[in-house]
Design a protein around this nucleic acid. Structure first.
Lengths: 341, 341
DNA sequence: TTGAAAGCGCTAACAA
DNA sequence: TTGTTAGCGCTTTCAA
């Protein structure tokens, strides 16, 4: 505010005003238990702090302590979906809980920006950095990160022992398929993504497992790959219905949204003619489709949260460096409760 | 990485290794032009930096310089929509461009968290803080913020002279209405929100202005208030169609999505039977509806960007403290190009 | 119960 | 062209 930049009030100013030494001020500010301060001096210091509006200088403090309270978070894409936001929030909350502050950088996939971001974090002597991706995938670990503690969030680097916190795609696929199975469906389609990824393979594996568990034979004709967007789902409806499918597991909520449109286009209804299960639990979409979409949640908040826990040594990774986070089912109304004919 | 915590390499280590003084190292590290360093010494320093893997300590640097390169960003809600993400990204990019780093905190509307977040930023001697809201609204300025430079983003505090960067709701409402007008529509409905807000008032005002400009009389019967979600839009379709409306301007994209469903439910089509315009340009929805939704973009990225520009004194606020950012129209396919019957 | 002083890693006069 | 030195605001022995 002040244009005059009136030199911030320091501990020395407080000491002077209170008529004590800086070390005394330091002691009361930090509530050091070891050092016993006279009630009188203590009060004078408190008053001076109030009156002068003293704020400790975190940088000076960190400098002398030799470590900072920063945790870096580098994200590849921060804005196109609410996903990165959730990761940031989870990380932020957990970091905060332990007295850390988040230094955020988004790189938009730009390697130069990434290098620069990491350098900046290193120069701020961060406690460590979380390297995150907006969709679960393999990444190459940027060079600079070997200089500090690091954990991968929603991504992994094969051939490296850096801990990676990732969603449990297989279990998620199982959950999704089970929702349909539990409602009595036997001919269950799966609209997978065309993108090769852990999500592609994991969810398919989960789908097969759930089918096997239920004694339903796997029929390759019922799984189709489609662009992971509304359009992909829309186009997949016809072929699937032709296979006499009664329920479909969609690779994500957007695909499910396209399926809704496709079903309507054909004069059919969800869930009566086709039960639909999504993946992601993208609130804005899933909760407000007609009918509201049953889906499986991608645990972005937890990913961020667990990421900092692992970084701080509060949670441990498995031997393979993985920490797998569950994808819980979210029941809404796109799967009828009664079994189909 | 190193569990042994092998004391970071400092400038002194470099100086020693290169056989020069720390000030020489400082000079080459910062590429000081004033000081002329011998080619030989310069090279020895560079080599030492490489070999030791030296990283300057930003905190020490900031400490002596008396100011940090931090800009704080406090957000009320970070994750429920991609909006906050966009603000963060805009702020981040612009801050970065000027050598600043973003310190992010989200408060989830919790006042204690907010106070703490601001204290933390103040203690880090931030250059200033951006206080942002996820939807355009009035806020009460937290006490701590008077201690530093501050700019409000996507919100404002009446009775304060703190600069506020906000979207131009009126012009946005005008743009939306004009899209319909330009396609020949004359009976244009407006599904406004039930929430009292700058968006409510501003967009309505814009709607009226556009109508007036086009010589179309304002008919109160054509504006209805509805919950700003899919459900609100869905329910509004019947009444509007009964008013023989041929085009509708929706308070946001989610409402528009509900309108699509409502129109279909009635066996009608978008845009043939009802042209639809949204607001927000929420990618995940707008770009992938059938047909893709014409809408008006809420400039979150720019809000964040302009926020830091104002903070750094690069852009100036108007006399009333406001900086208004335009909401550009986004043409897609929910408004037919030919005039209705 | 309190204070003096050294030093965290760095910059910026000022000397040499 | 390079080095010496005095801090920046703070914590932390160690003495008093």
């Amino acid at each position: 505010m002040d244009d005059s930049t009136p030199r911030a009030v320091t501990m020395r100013d407080v000491a002077q005003a209170a008529g004590v030494s800086v070390s005394t001020v330091s002691h009361v500010v930090n509530n050091k238990k070891g050092a016993r301060i006279g009630k009188d001096a203590w009060e004078r210091v408190q008053r001076a702090i109030q009156e002068l509006g003293y704020r400790p200088n975190a940088m000076a403090k960190d400098l002398v302590k030799g470590r900072s309270r920063f945790i870096g978070l580098v994200a590849d894409v921060i804005a196109s979906t609410p996903f990165a936001g959730q990761i940031i929030r989870g990380a932020q909350d957990e970091a905060w809980r332990h007295g850390y502050v988040l230094l955020v950088a988004n790189t938009e996939g730009n390697e130069a920006a990434e290098t620069e971001a990491i350098a900046m974090m290193l120069e701020h002597k961060v406690r460590g950095v979380l390297y995150s991706a907006w969709y679960h995938r393999e990444v190459e670990l940027p060079a600079g990160l070997s200089e500090t503690d690091c954990v991968l969030v929603n991504c992994f680097a094969s051939g490296s022992d850096v801990p990676a916190v990732v969603p449990d795609e297989v279990a998620g696929g199982r959950e999704a398929t089970r929702m349909l199975l539990a409602a009595g469906h036997r001919r269950i389609g799966f609209i997978n993504t065309t993108t090769p990824s852990p999500a592609h393979d994991g969810r398919l594996e989960g789908y097969r497992q759930a089918l096997a568990d239920a004694g339903v034979p796997f029929d390759p004709a019922l799984v189709v790959d489609a662009r992971p967007e509304q359009e992909g789902g829309f186009d997949a409806v016809g072929p699937l219905l032709a296979q006499e499918v009664t329920g479909v597991f969609c690779h994500n909520d957007r695909v499910a949204m396209g399926v809704y449109d496709g079903v309507r286009e054909l004069g059919r209804r969800v869930p009566e003619d086709l039960a639909v299960v999504g993946f992601d639990n993208q609130e804005v979409i899933a909760a407000h489709l007609r009918p509201p979409l049953s889906t499986v949640a991608l645990p972005h908040y937890e990913l961020g949260q667990v990421g900092v826990r692992v970084l701080l040594g509060l949670d441990a990774a498995a031997d393979d460096g993985r920490v797998v986070v569950a994808c819980p089912p979210v029941h809404r109304s796109s799967v009828s409760i009664t079994a189909p004919a």
